[in-house]
């Protein structure tokens, strides 16, 4: 910034300084009794600048602005970095979306979980398994026990062996897990041109940026930019590492008819299914936040109490004065 200033401006700065010095001298002459520290304006400024508070706040401002920069841009300021990956290979970073369960006190939106289950069941479940969720897990979260039982009974599970030592088919129970679309990984790859659709139970925990990434991926399909070579059967998605993904765009407006009348736009479908998948990955979320609130309240009040008790107990020791009374010579 200083380079841009004309040289004459520096002269005016000098003259300002002279004026300040003169005036302080004047003040000093007029009030000779006052203390040196308060007599001149410049020394007051100096003592403020030298104070511990100034040092501490400058340090906090420095560390804070570097931390803020690093958080915002992902790199340290003024430090060059070399990456083996191009940004395309890493995938576009997703924006942060305002999830209904983002805040410290916010629970899941369970109506959204219920709609998301419907989307998973009607769309995603054609290719993706959800191994770690059983029908019973839906009870009291998104469905009543009767509904979950009815849904489980629509699926046939292999059970056994029976008295003759043979396996048999039976309708599902609440304790059964959601049925996988393919019997094994090889079958899944064979049906998807060699690409394995990942299990979705923990997908929001297993990807960087979690739900934001999954939402951005589901809604991020578009035409590849000019010059981007894409193989047959692959699709362009800027959020996917490498930008070429085997999964085609699956969510379209009005693809699913919600029972509660919510307009089924693409982004609504994606938001609901991501909320559902987030629940599948973190079913303990609501209870965890509630326990967290309790823990913060209890532990902070216990800390305050212990600090008070410490000060109370130490006050006697900290406030005592030790006097030395020399022995009086009584001989004369």
């Amino acid at each position: 910034m200083l380079f841009r200033l004309p040289a004459s401006s520096l002269k005016s700065v000098h003259s300002l300084k002279d004026v300040a010095a003169n005036s302080s001298r004047l003040v000093a002459r007029r009030t000779p009794v006052r203390f040196a520290s308060s007599s001149s304006a410049s020394s007051t400024v100096k003592s403020v600048l030298d104070s511990r508070a100034a040092l501490a706040s400058a340090a906090i401002a420095t560390v804070g602005s570097i931390a803020w920069y690093t958080h915002l841009y992902g790199t340290l300021p003024f430090v060059g970095q070399v990456h083996a990956n191009s940004p395309a290979e890493e995938g576009l970073h997703p924006p942060q979306y305002p999830w209904s369960h983002n805040g410290w006190l916010d629970s899941y939106d369970h109506a959204s979980i219920r709609r998301g289950y419907q989307v998973y069941r009607e769309v995603c479940a054609a290719c993706h398994s959800l191994d770690r969720i059983a029908w019973r897990n839906l009870v009291g979260v998104s469905h009543t026990a009767d509904e979950a039982k009815a849904m489980a009974e629509e699926v046939e599970y292999e059970d056994g062996p029976n008295d003759q030592g043979e396996m048999f088919q039976r309708p599902g129970k609440l304790s059964d897990y959601l049925p996988p679309p393919y019997p094994n990984e090889e079958a899944a790859r064979a049906s998807n041109q060699g690409a394995l659709p990942p299990d979705l139970s923990l997908i929001t925990k297993a990807r960087h940026s979690g739900p934001d990434y999954v939402f951005a991926l589901l809604t991020g399909y578009r035409d590849p930019p000019a010059g981007f070579e894409i193989r047959e059967g692959m699709n362009y998605n800027p959020y996917f590492p490498g930008n070429a993904i085997s999964m085609a765009r699956v969510l379209f407006d009005e693809l699913v008819e919600y029972e509660d009348g919510t307009p089924a736009t693409t982004s609504q479908l994606a938001k609901d299914v991501v909320t559902f998948l987030n629940w599948a990955a973190e079913p303990e979320h609501d209870e965890r936040k509630k326990a967290g609130i309790k823990a913060v309240i209890l532990f902070s009040s216990l800390t305050l109490i212990s600090l008070y008790v410490k000060r109370f107990k130490w006050s006697v020791i900290k406030n005592r004065k030790i006097f030395y009374n020399p022995p009086v010579d009584k001989t004369h």
């Binding site: 006190l105 369970h110 109506a111 009543t144 609501d286 309240i297």
Partner: peptide, 18 residues
């Protein structure tokens, strides 16, 4: 704590929509 939680999350929990 539960009453504060329920008030904050009114309409979002399962017990509100069941």
């Amino acid at each position: 704590v539960t009453s504060v939680w329920d008030k904050w999350n009114q309409g979002k929990q399962w017990k509100d929509i069941r």
